[in-house]
Design a protein around this nucleic acid. Sequence first.
RNA 1: UGUUCCUUGGUGUAAUGGUAGCACAUCAGUUUCUGGCACUGCUUGUCAGGGUUCGAAUCCUUGAGGAACAACCA
Length: 566
Amino acid sequence: MDEKKEENEVQGLNFIEAEVAKDLEEGRNNGRIQTRFPPEPNGYLHIGHAKAICMDFGIAKKFNGTCNLRFDDTNPVKEDVEYVDSIKEDIQWLGYQWQNVYYASDYFQQLYDLAIRFIKEGKAYVDEQSAEQIAAQKGSPTVPGTNSPYRDRSVEENLKLFQDMTDGKVEDGKMVLRAKIDMASPNMHFRDPIMYRIITTHPHHRTGWKWKVYPMYDFAHGQSDYFEGVTHSLCTLEFEVHRPLYDWFIDQFADSDYRPKQREFNRLNLTYTVMSKRKMLQLVKEGLVRGWDDPRMPTICGLRRRGYTPESIHDFVYNKIGFTKYVGLIDMSVLESCIREDLNKRANRVCGVVNPVKLVLTNYPDNQEETVQMENNQEDENAGMRDVPFSKECWIERDDFMEEAPKKYFRLTPGNEVRLKGAYIVKCTGCKKDENGNVVEVYAEYDPLSKSGSGTPESNRKIKGTIHWVSVKHALEAEVRLYDRLFSCENPGEDKERDFHEMLNPDSLKIVKAYVEPSLANAKALDHYQFQRIGYFNVDPDSKPGALVFNRTVGLKDSWAKIANK
RNA sequence: UGUUCCUUGGUGUAAUGGUAGCACAUCAGUUUCUGGCACUGCUUGUCAGGGUUCGAAUCCUUGAGGAACAACCA
């Protein structure tokens, strides 16, 4: 019985959750669960961070623990408050709330005192070689390193020199504090890792000019976890090699059985985009995108502006990609299917014509107009109906007319009938072309008895094709931004041969003039819609009444395009 | 020729010694006043060899392939 129950509990847990469950069961750290999300405030959060956020906050939620936000702000050269604010905003938008906000810089004094203790115990020394010399002595993964000539200084000398570093008496780069461990260790991270370096050129965004020495990641992260009482320090796979050092540092000074546990999971890689901060920064700095929140960026703010919902991202992370130790590459189509699924339920349907051509109903009275009713969302029974004006001339998609159509083309072509969504059945009679052969107007005759919902036998006729439309007289002009993948190759981050710029998709953004139905006049920023038969769109923050701007979040699946391409 | 980690359909992920399943993608249908949604069905998989076992994707072993690590970055 008990065995059965245990099995059920382990079901559906990823490997990290399973380990946490086990720790809990064994009473590790008094049954306490505490995690942290530790971003460095040197860039905007991206979808890969969203995965880590779901893990860190999700574990705390699932096991009744707490999760804190801790900024890993140990390098003032790169960090800035600008990023602190955006990071907080993005986490909350994703639907998570931290227990406390902490900063690694909160622990600068504590870390410093600990460094002094290491020196006094003969476990750290001041090295005054150049970065190049130190690197040369490190050896390589296959060749052991050699000891620094300064490795065996006296405690007193080390203490004095570290004090000089602290007091700003030493120039940047002239001295570092290193842990004295093992220059021959097969793990490179044990070859006397640097604990402190001197930075006097930049003020810290929180401590100003107070400190001249700053701790390195390996000496700051694990210790911060320990000071805070973190029980599970979850991070990505590249830190796996750091784990023995993480444990080593803590073992040197821990005074109880409590131990934080670092565990690693795979980071997210997505096709047709890049996730490295360096490359994203390059995209922004070089103006290759319009900013960190450009809807083509994989940033949280970019996805938000693009029309992604927190729910869709959560579904993607938890139910679609999972957490493992295998470094894979997720197809963008998986993310796209998540947002389609979410928006299918919540986005109201509207008519928007993105590539317009005029349709004239030759037998419809010239000045007549009328109102037809359309369902807002047939996937949501509470969504209701709306009125849409109809008249003799309508904008329709260029793609919905072909003078000479192939088989299985169910749209307008001379002699063929289609249903104008929510209105009438019309029969195509021809078109007008300009001197270059471009279609400028399409002609059709409507069947007055076929009005949708009228219940007449004519209205109930089965017509193979239904197209959307917007009355010319009532149409609102809108700017529509059609986004496509940012890169034209699957894994731009991996391709070291080709230049980054060459791999960019030149058609990642197309801006078009579109016509939308008048109900959209007061659409608010970030509102989601489905432009029927076209795709999901949301209102860009640039949008204003009278100057509407829409972003294409993602297109609808288009099985006609597949047939047509064959 | 070091250390650590990884390898299940095209992609990602389940199966925790006992029926290899799911999602996305693909293909073929049904349905449809969205060529959407929904529904049905097809195809495709345990990296290789050896061992333990009544039974192995799972445990052991050898090999192959891949990743991370040589920043005064995190």
